[in-house]
Nucleic acid binder design. Structure first.
Lengths: 197, 197
DNA sequence: GCAGAGATTGACCGATCGGTCAAATAGCCT
DNA sequence: AGGCTATTTGACCGATCGGTCAATCTCTGC
């Protein structure tokens, strides 16, 4: 009976543990709804210790979201640099779905609170990326239905993965079946849209 | 010369004006992120006046969300009482889209913060409704893809209408074109799913 | 004019917020 | 042992939170 089992989860550096706990809190009860005291309590630290590892609550949010935003930026850069074609779009859908699966909680956090946190640099960067995505989508062909299809496909996928965590109890584990079904549905939604990028 | 022009917008009863302002705030910066002082400032009242019209911040949230939840309950009751068929589902999709269009901000509010506010009665009621919707959807036929299709269709539509407000600037006004496109896309997403309800 | 209900307000309350700071503790190198 | 840095912590700060309360103001009916 080991008192402190590594238990597979993160018994890593304190700052990593704090980041992980903060991510859980931010995505479930919101940034404004999360106090440094709560994070400290869950982590078993004092509030002062949290502020020792992260200069401020906003710095903690930045550290939490930055890896996801970086990856989103990477995924989009690849897509935007490719010639518009059905293949490049298929590749984008696949990597976008992969991004969603890997960073669900981060996506949930800045998607749901992007408006409230727009003056936080990392969130502003995320919002700019999404706005660019939206623009690129509805540039040449800007029919309302096209916009809606992209919005429902990408936003709906993002929403379902995260809000599904709330309503569907334990389902939606990140296995390959989920990934493939997502790619299939999203691709189908975009099938009527010409590859205008 | 009337000093207070009706100006088209709501110069109705103070409680209605406060409800409207609170809805804007709750949906844009979140319930936890909205203070009674902010609401009072926007409305041009004092914080005490807000608490005169609504017994508490939670009572204000209740008053804001209740009409939408009532309508959702109505829409779902009609759907659940009908025999499963393609027609009843089409009718449900249409009224659900109508519900989304009519109550976007309310939907945005309790969809994004349903987890954080689960102990608020009206939000708990909304969550129960959505859970029932999710259950009814994946009851007999519970393939992962079916769940995803429903989630993406309904959640995606809900998300796009509200988050679209954030990213797409002025578009997405609630005209009939928007409604018809939404009904079309959602119906298409559900077309491969048999009407198991 | 005046009484009384409805509406509005500022003063105030305890609690909590994010954040600062100096003191204490723990671990390591020599 | 001593010195040194990294880490942790409690005490404390001003600001703001949601909420209470009594005093005012406004308007109506008589």
């Amino acid at each position: 009976m080991s008192s402190d089992a590594p238990s597979g989860s993160s018994r890593a550096r304190p700052s990593d543990e704090l980041r992980s706990i903060a991510l859980d809190q931010f995505s479930s009860v919101g940034y404004a709804g999360t106090s440094l005291q709560q994070i400290a309590d869950v982590a078993g630290y004092s509030k002062s210790s949290v502020l020792y590892h992260f200069a401020s609550k906003e710095a903690l949010l930045d550290a939490v979201l930055t890896p996801a935003i970086d990856e989103l930026q990477r995924v989009m850069a690849i897509w935007l640099s490719a010639r518009p074609s059905e293949q490049s779009r298929a590749a984008f859908v696949e990597s976008f779905v992969g991004f969603l699966l890997r960073y669900r909680l981060e996506v949930h956090t800045f998607i749901n609170q992007g408006a409230a946190l727009e003056d936080v640099p990392v969130v502003a960067r995320a919002n700019a990326l999404i706005a660019r995505l939206s623009d690129a989508v509805s540039a040449a062909d800007s029919s309302l239905e096209t916009k809606l299809r992209f919005g429902i496909a990408l936003g709906g996928a993002a929403y379902t993965l995260t809000a599904g965590l709330t309503y569907a109890d334990s389902a939606l584990q990140p296995d390959d079946e989920l990934r493939e079904a997502l790619i299939r549905i999203v691709s189908e939604l975009l099938s009527t849209v010409p590859p205008t990028r």
